[in-house]
């Protein structure tokens, strides 16, 4: 499905919706009334300078933080009162800005943990054997997708940074989410890794929805269908890349604090 087709398909089919999200930390307003509609099957990018509240929005959407006020619905159901694990079990799975792997488990066991959860019977869970429980082929398939086949038996904590991030994405995919939220998936990666992750996300987005926080504007321009720009906890613009690149307010917000190279600025592209 091309981006254009995807944008045309069912414009009102919204898988995740937030109304009036608000979060205060002891009086400091980190997120000030954010409304979001994430279309099913789209890649939706959340951008904005550091401290804009992007991670906080993710924490609110996935129920990792209590809301000050607002409402969240997932698959047309109000999920505001659910716990993070309940929401995850329904198919809303996130990754973390700071790399999050199970350091003392092997790479394969990291994947296995995500794969097994919905499938294990109570009997197997308490009395089964952890290694014999799951199809090694599905694990190696997922590891192959992120170029980690040969690391399956390594301790996850011993992997270099880029590979940890790859493992994290593979683990998120293993949970087979309907919506996956990725918090800065390419942060700290080298050029080749960025390309690989971009490719991976594009492929992962087939049949599911991706919401991502991302600073790399080149990547956002390549794969995002919709971009929401956040500044000081508020949405200042939303639309496709081309529309935003011509919006002076967006350019200003971005040039204000983004320390990356000029080429990656939306404004720089437009001028």
């Amino acid at each position: 499905m091309s981006q254009a087709e995807r944008s045309r398909a069912a414009p009102n089919d919204c898988v995740l919706e937030a109304q009036g999200l608000r979060k205060e930390f002891r009086g400091f307003v980190a997120v000030a009334g954010v409304n979001l509609k994430i279309r099913r099957g789209s890649i939706h990018a959340l951008i904005g300078p550091n401290g804009a509240g992007k991670t906080t929005v993710f924490n609110l959407l996935t129920r990792f933080l209590p809301l000050s006020s607002g409402r969240i619905s997932f698959e047309s159901e109000d999920v505001t009162a659910l716990r993070p694990d309940q929401l995850a079990a329904r198919g809303l799975v996130r990754s973390f800005q700071i790399s999050a792997v199970f350091a003392n488990l092997s790479v394969a066991d990291n994947i296995r943990l995500a794969l097994q959860r919905p499938m294990l019977s109570a009997m197997r869970f308490w009395a089964g054997d952890k290694a014999a429980t799951f199809g090694e082929d599905r694990i190696s398939g997922l590891l192959g997708q992120v170029g980690l086949e040969s690391f399956a038996r390594e301790r996850a904590g011993d992997l270099p940074y880029g590979r940890k991030r790859a493992l994290e994405i593979a683990t998120t995919l293993a949970a087979d989410p309907k919506v996956m939220l990725l918090d800065e998936p390419t942060q700290g990666l080298g050029h080749e890794d960025v390309d690989r992750v971009t490719d991976l996300i594009r492929r992962a987005a087939q049949g599911r929805t991706v919401v991502m926080v991302e600073h790399n504007m080149k990547m956002v321009a390549q794969i995002a269908d919709t971009i929401t720009v956040l500044r000081r906890g508020e949405i200042i613009a939303e639309g496709a890349y081309q529309e935003l690149a011509e919006n002076p307010e967006v350019v200003e917000a971005y040039l204000g604090s983004n320390r990356r190279g000029d080429r990656s600025q939306p404004g720089a592209r437009a001028s």
Binding site: F64, D85, R94, A100, F102, L105
Partner: peptide, 12 residues
């Protein structure tokens, strides 16, 4: 190892 991550994979 990582409680938030386990939670985000659906473990209570």
């Amino acid at each position: 190892d990582n409680e938030p991550r386990a939670m985000s994979l659906g473990y209570d």
